[in-house]
Each structure stands twice: as structure tokens, then as C-alpha cells.
Simulated scan of single mutants.
Amino acid sequence: MSPGDGNDDDLYGGTGQTRTRLPDGGQGDMYGGAARRPARSSSRSLITVVGVVVLLVAAIAFANRGDDASSDGASDKKPGTSATAPTGTKAVASGFAHDEQGAQSAAANYAVALVSADILKPDRRTEIVRQLFVPDKVAGLEAKFDKAYSTGFLSRLGLDTNGNAPAGQTYVSRTVPVGTKTTAYSDGTATAEVWCTGAFGTAGESTKSPVTNDWFTMTLKLRWTGGDWKVESFSQKDGPSPVNGDNKISSADEIAKAVEQYGGFTYAR
């Protein structure tokens, strides 16, 4: 569906299961689905973000890859700050094959971008929206995303107007595709589902939104345009979620260091 069509209750979403709402009771289906929820409070209510916020669809939150450094032996060198960025030369993947597999690859990459921390940053959000979505949806979506990720919304997440966490804290929104499938496909359109997990929240001793993990499925409707697959609309729903493992919980400092030292990935099928 296009923005403003269908149920206007959920930001970006027609599923009714997204956690992020338009600010101040605003209405409008942000492009067919809610992006993701970056952080959950202990009560599971703090804007699960989209990552949503991340909404994520945040779009651009949908991304790209890799450097091959290699291997055989351990190195005493600590990763530099560049390790926090995807390893490729582009922030979001492009140039997907014009076939069903290419559509799945595009959906997986775009899911990562839409639920990334970058979607909360005004400058990066603009780049992401323009790269991920079909041209005729961009202008409307930029306005909706800006309204959704308002100063008030960012403040509730503990972030400043540029989407950055306070000194001593690290905002985390990392999405990991677990699998993809297409539920509809034709030469010009495709619908793909991406089953994801990830880590969302703010790492820091005084955070009100500690980093937690989540499981969700994003559905992306894609259109072949300009020689590539672009997003027509998207939505999100919870699960499937496995039983939580008996893992030792890491400190906020350990989580923050992991985010700084391990770069995010993009995906291809």
C-alpha cells in the first residue's frame, strides 16, 4: 500500500503489530508497514523501535559490505572506528539481479537498513529513503519519516536531535536477517519476507533502555524500476521467536565495545 492508504494507525504499517506510532497521535501508514523498534524498555513499551525507528525503515537503514582482512594468526591491533560501519563502499546495497533471488537479496539488505540506527539520523535518513524506495514515494516518505522521528521521539529514546546518544552511552540497532522467502513474484514486482533477529537499545550505565534482542519478520513489496529492486511498501510483525537461551547477560560497557569493534553486515542471497 502507499502512504496514507489503508489503516492509518501504525506508522509504516498495516499489520497492527508495529510498536512505533506517529508522534502526537499523527496518522498515516508509513509506507505500508512499520519499521522496527530499536529499543524496548523493561516494560517493553519504550518504542520498540523501529528500529523502528529504525524504522527503521528507517530505511536505510537496509545496507552493504565487506573487507577481507585476513586471517591466519591473531593480531594485537584493535579495530578502528571504521569497524563500526558496513565493510563495503556503499551504505546500502544496489544492483540486484532481476529475478526472484535478486528480490530476496534486496529485501534482506533493505531490512537491515530500515532498522538501523542510521534511520534516526536526519542526514543519513534522507540518503536511505532516496536509495531504497521507488522514486514516486520518496517525497511523501521523507516527510513522514521526519515527522515520525521528531525531536520529541528522539528525546524519549534518550537521543539528541541528530540521533546520537549522550556521551558515555551507545545507541544500538543492529538487524540480522535469518532467512528470506518470496510470497509473490512477477517480472516487475515481488513480495519478500525477511525473518530477522537483532540487538536494540542504548548501552550505558544510566540508560533507561538497555540493549535487548528481538525477533521479527519484515514483509517488503518491491518494484523493479531504474534497473533495480526498490521498496514499494513494507510492514513488520513479531516472531517467529525461539526460546531464550541461558546466556550470561553482558555489561553495558561490553555491549558498547562490541558495537564499536564489530562492524555491521549487509546480506545477499
Rank of each mutant, 00 (worst) to 15 (best):
A107L: 11
R36E: 11
P86Q: 14
A93F: 00
L56S: 09
V115D: 04
A97M: 05
L46Q: 00
I47K: 10
L114P: 01
R36M: 05
L120V: 05
T81K: 10
A103Q: 03
G102C: 08
T87D: 14
S42V: 11
A106P: 00
Q104P: 03
A117W: 04
D72K: 12
G80N: 06
F62T: 04
G95Y: 06
D76W: 04
G25D: 13
E127I: 04
E127W: 02
V54T: 13
G80W: 01
A93V: 01
A74H: 06
K90C: 03
R125L: 11
D118Y: 13
L120A: 09
A39L: 13
G26P: 10
G88Y: 04
A34S: 14
L120M: 11
Q101V: 14
P38M: 09
T81E: 02
G51R: 15
Q104H: 05
R65M: 05
F62I: 02
A111Q: 05
I128G: 06
A74T: 01
A106N: 04
I47W: 10
S71H: 07
P86I: 12
I47N: 07
G51V: 12
A113T: 05
G25S: 15
L114F: 06
V53E: 09
G28Q: 05
P122W: 15
R44K: 07
G33K: 00
D99Y: 12
L114A: 14
P122D: 00
V49C: 01
A113D: 09
P122R: 05
A34I: 06
I128K: 00
L114Q: 08
E127D: 13
A117Q: 07
P122V: 05
L120N: 10
S70Y: 00
S42T: 14
A108C: 12
L114Y: 02
G73C: 09
G95S: 15
Y31L: 14
D123G: 02
D29C: 12
D29F: 02
A35S: 14
R65V: 07
V92W: 11
D76L: 04
E100S: 11
V92L: 05
V49L: 06
L46F: 06
R125N: 10
I128Q: 00
T89C: 03
G32H: 02
V49P: 00
